[in-house]
Design a protein around this nucleic acid. Structure first.
Lengths: 190, 190
DNA sequence: CCTACCGATCGGTAGG
DNA sequence: CCTACCGATCGGTAGG
């Protein structure tokens, strides 16, 4: 029971931290900002987290976990390589520009604020997600749908996907699904 | 004469700041770190710059100016659309991963530390560079070399290019030129 | 989770 | 460009 309550409060903190770290940056956000955002005293933060760095790691870990879950769910029951790829693209964009936007932007832009140990742990989580992509791209290459150098291709795709946070505006004329389809068009051969 | 000396010292500071802001982040870098890097007292920094934020802006402005100069030089005398595109790609990678690496990474990753006024000024500089690309891509599209939606394509390309800082290692087996050619291969139609 | 607090450090300034 | 310094703020802790 107490564990459940702890978890909720912890999640609230991670959520608030995602927002603050993303809009002001990690270093610029003070523990006082964060405490105020969830309505507690700054000293009380350290009942939930050992230190400020641990909060950053938790935000990033949540970001990777979220986008991985989205991808796994999107692939469920799908067998056609092209459709798998389409769903991975759309899923990535949906998480990045919608549901897990803040945590994922923190993941992308606060890398240098992580300790090397924390970095290793996040890399491990990220690798699982990248493996998912690699497998789908390999299938697609076997089917002749994409360029055979899938490792290189994957890096190019990741770059394009992640860059969307720099320019995509949800209130514009292009929906996330439409953007995904356009990207897929550029990725597919011929 | 004094102006020349001032400029040199200023440039030294911008160089040192590029390195420090990139490796530690802007907020984490103190004016004392920076002063020590060029061998002066921390208070003396403010003889050269009004405040810390002005140094960040100077670093970023130098980054954009550098990469624009590289692009303009690379295009000089070239008339064939495909070759123009190849040179833009290679030029971008050369600046980003080599000659102006630090300043450009700061430009990519410290965006949220800029004031809105400084942001506007940097955007203006960046627009000039993007226009260069847009024109070359439009020529290439007219020649049927690339997908006709060049605005979208340009954003995808920028993403792929800028993402290379996350994974490219100069001591690996792939040279920058080779990487450029591979990217061009994915960009070109057919 | 709060109260009360501390040591350290930060960006920046005045006066030369 | 240096010396000497300040007010503000920071992450974190002890004790409850």
């Amino acid at each position: 029971m107490q564990n459940t309550l702890d978890k909720t409060r912890r999640d609230e903190l991670i959520d608030a931290a995602s927002h603050l770290f993303r809009s002001q940056g990690y270093e610029r956000t003070t523990v006082r900002d964060l405490a105020q955002a969830v309505g507690m005293q700054s000293g009380s933060l350290f009942y939930h987290f050992k230190n400020k760095a641990e909060i950053l790691e938790a935000v990033m870990a949540k970001g990777v976990a979220d986008i991985t879950a989205v991808a796994e769910f999107a692939l469920e029951g799908v067998t056609e390589p092209k459709e798998k790829l389409r769903r991975l693209v759309t899923g990535h964009l949906t998480a990045l520009l919608g549901s897990s936007q803040h945590a994922l932007e923190v993941l992308l832009y606060e890398w240098h604020s992580l300790s090397t140990e924390a970095r290793d742990r996040i890399v491990q989580l990220r690798d699982r997600y990248e493996t998912l992509w690699q497998q789908v791209l390999d299938e697609a290459a076997t089917a002749g749908l994409v360029h055979p150098d899938t490792t290189f291709l994957r890096k190019m795709i990741f770059g394009s996907l992640n860059w969307t946070v720099q320019w995509y505006r949800p209130d514009g004329s292009m929906s996330i699904e439409e953007m995904g389809d356009r990207m897929l068009n550029l990725i597919l051969r011929g």
